[in-house]
């Protein structure tokens, strides 16, 4: 029974290995990137950026007729740039608050992407199902390589530039005063977001990638006291939801991306409940101690 549930999937062909590899790579890169975006309060901008990768990719395909990795990357990065420019424009000249500006811009562009995809770009091998559900097992070799490169690059950059990143995230003013290129770091973060979105696109789809970005960071933030710990916990959360999600998708015969996301959200809920209970318990203890010390006197 246990063998059938847990071990057997690994022995039939290499698809389980491949699926876990793909989802782990997505989990690691998104969790690290997500931690910085979360702390900079850019979760919703990340949501917008993940959505507009779709129109970017479709527009790039329509203009060049190519679906090669570099074209897709370029399309998504350009779409990201256009989006952040438009959001700032609407904020400033449309007198819209940031959240409204984000909502206006990304929903419009996403709608455009969906229409282009379902009319002019029908022969592209992207379909709506892929956009919505992703397909962990359907990731092509070149996409897997891109994903691996992106993950290694993100890990390496984070380790190498940990301190500048920490300072620029926590206190951009001091970082700027120290002469750190704060603007460049921000731009790099957004660029990496576009690239990661593209790399994760086939595996988890345009909408669910946002879960891989926000959920691990939010979970880690509940328990971590230091940035180093937060990054590690976020990666652990991502990996755990990737593996558990794969199992869940096998047992239920459902979308693996959806299963990963659901598992991740459950892990968050459990962590939230646990930290909340611990706080309540500690408070109750403190109150008891106070009462006990008050009694004899």
């Amino acid at each position: 029974m246990l063998y059938e549930l847990f071990i057997e999937p690994w022995t039939i062909g290499d698809w389980m290995w491949r699926g876990v590899l793909v989802s782990s790579l997505v989990a690691i890169s998104c969790a690290i990137l997500g931690t910085f975006l979360y702390l900079k309060r850019l979760s919703l901008l990340a949501d917008a950026m993940a959505h507009v990768a779709l129109p970017g990719i479709v527009a790039a395909y329509l203009l060049t007729g190519s679906q090669s990795t570099p074209t897709m990357l370029l399309g998504a990065i350009l779409a990201g740039l256009v989006t952040s420019g438009l959001i700032r424009f609407v904020e400033r000249y449309g007198h819209a608050r940031t959240d409204a500006a984000i909502g206006i811009v990304f929903t419009s562009l996403f709608a455009l992407g969906i229409l282009l995809l379902s009319t002019f770009a029908r022969d592209a091998h992207l379909d709506l199902n892929c956009v919505l559900y992703g397909n962990v097992l359907g990731v092509a070799d070149h996409s897997l390589i891109l994903l691996a490169v992106v993950t290694v690059a993100i890990v390496a950059l984070t380790v190498l530039f940990f301190r500048p990143l920490q300072l620029a995230t926590f206190d951009p003013a001091l970082a700027a005063a120290f002469g750190l290129p704060v603007g460049l770091i921000h731009a790099g973060l957004m660029g990496t977001l576009s690239v990661t979105t593209v790399a994760s696109f086939e595996a988890v789809g345009a909408i669910l990638v946002i879960a891989a970005i926000i959920t691990p960071a939010a979970t880690a933030h509940l328990i971590a006291k230091r940035l180093e710990t937060m990054l590690l916990v976020a990666v652990a959360h991502g990996l755990l939801s990737a593996v558990l999600g794969m199992y869940l998708s096998i047992w239920l015969e459902c979308s693996s991306a959806g299963a990963m996301v659901t598992t991740g959200a459950l892990l968050y809920a459990v962590t939230l409940g646990a930290t909340w209970a611990r706080r309540r318990w500690r408070r109750a203890q403190r109150r008891q101690r106070l009462q006990a010390s008050a009694l004899p006197g």
């Binding site: 979760s43 919703l44 909408i207």
Partner: peptide
Amino acid sequence: IGRTRPDAALGLVLAGFFGLGVV
């Protein structure tokens, strides 16, 4: 009840529920 940032709470719930729907 937690210290999750409001913007992230929104994104988290959005994606979590949508993920469940996709499942």
